[in-house]
Write a protein that binds this DNA or RNA. Structure first.
Length: 273
DNA sequence: ACGAGCGCCTGTCGGC
DNA sequence: TGCCGACAGGCGCTCG
């Protein structure tokens, strides 16, 4: 599910409150219950609760699509994958269906990791950089420049859309925001990355920045039963809009499967050649 | 180096 | 109504 803006929204809620939950910054873990053991990437389920207990949440951060809780000794990394979400509840509240991990806090609250499809993962580790080592630049950081994007795109010859989904090239984009960024840049998802001019890379850079920032401003996108609270889905220009008129030119939006993912684009605004 | 296929999971939806 | 395939915001693996 979540891409960078959805994860950022969750980070801000954990830090400051929001999405129906209380802030947890500064709280200390008092226990944990794993309800689907494979959710835990490391350490072992047997070691997890004891190691977590007593550690205080010193900071709540994000790297790409990973939530990053800085604890007293360790990092708690959380990747929500397709269907994960976090809630902050009263510790005594009955669990919800698909709650995979319950992390108890010493002030009567509880962080629940809910994940219908069981793809999400938690890491409790003293070496977060080992888990995050493969990630490319953060697209909203100052060092992510049009020239840096151009260099990374032209260093390879790949279809543009799968390349943008590759977290080692740029970190944080997923299927929705990639479609929207390519549309804003007027670039076809199958264009060869190596063929991009500096001007085209600069347009893509601006498109990526704009859609991510708008997604954050709107608290992410909510589709179907997944995720809650955001309304960026009301701003989609192409994603999920096959057959409907392009909001820029009126041509029907097309859908194609590219790299095993649904892709939506305007054939007029995003010519393949 | 790149792209395709598949596995991991559960749920929803549309067609027959 | 029931069944069946397609599809879903991600990512890691193998195989050509």
């Amino acid at each position: 599910m979540p891409e960078l803006p959805e994860v950022e929204t969750i980070v801000r809620a954990l830090r400051d409150g929001g999405r129906g939950g209380a802030p947890v910054l500064g709280c200390t873990f008092s226990g944990a219950e794993m309800r689907w053991a494979r959710t835990l990437a490391e350490p072992s389920p047997a070691a997890f609760a004891a190691r977590l207990t007593g550690q205080r949440i010193e900071a709540v951060d994000r790297r790409a699509k990973f939530l990053w809780l800085h604890l007293t000794h360790d990092a708690l990394l959380i990747h929500l994958r397709m269907s994960g979400d976090l809630r902050v509840d009263a510790a005594a509240a009955p669990p919800e269906p698909h709650d995979r991990a319950l992390l108890l806090l010493d002030n009567g609250l509880r962080i629940a990791f809910n994940d219908t499809r069981k793809f999400g993962r938690l890491w409790l580790t003293a070496e977060p950089q080992r888990v995050l080592a493969h990630l490319g630049p953060e697209p909203l950081n100052d060092d992510f420049t049009p020239a840096a994007l151009h260099q990374r795109l032209t260093a390879r010859r790949r279809q543009l859309k799968p390349l943008l989904l590759d977290q080692s090239v740029i970190a944080g984009l997923g299927n929705i925001y990639t479609d929207e960024a390519l549309h804003r840049a007027g670039l076809h998802p199958l264009r060869s990355s190596q063929s991009l001019s500096m001007d085209e890379a600069a347009a893509l850079w601006a498109g990526i920045r704009a859609v991510l920032q708008e997604g954050i401003d709107r608290n992410g996108a909510s589709i179907d039963w997944v995720y809650r609270g955001g309304d960026f889905q009301n701003s989609f220009r192409v994603h999920l809009r096959a057959g409907q008129p392009c909001l820029a030119c009126g041509a029907p939006v097309e859908r194609a499967v590219i790299g095993q993912r649904s892709s939506y684009f305007c054939p007029h605004c995003q010519p393949q050649e």
